[in-house]
């Protein structure tokens, strides 16, 4: 599965499980938050990615946050 910010590119090139990321320079980060809060944001995205991997999909799917 792919975590990326520009989901339209992931769709164009054929990715099937797509999770929108935080931002281009820090897809799994949030530099304005404290380190602990930021890690929680990252963990949430990773948990969503793991959930997407366990989901049955029969076509290209964007898993919305």
């Amino acid at each position: 599965m792919q975590i990326c910010t520009i989901t339209s590119i992931a769709l164009a090139v054929g990715a099937n499980r797509i999770l929108p990321a935080a931002a281009i320079p820090y897809p799994l980060g949030s530099p304005d938050l404290s380190p602990n809060q930021e890690k929680a944001v990252r963990r949430k995205l990773v948990d969503q990615a793991l959930a997407a991997l366990q989901c049955h999909v029969d076509k290209q799917t964007i898993f919305n946050a």
């Binding site: 975590i3 990326c4 990773v46």
Partner: peptide, 8 residues
């Protein structure tokens, strides 16, 4: 069995 691909 599973891959997470991250893109910027």
């Amino acid at each position: 069995q599973a891959v997470i691909l991250t893109s910027t």
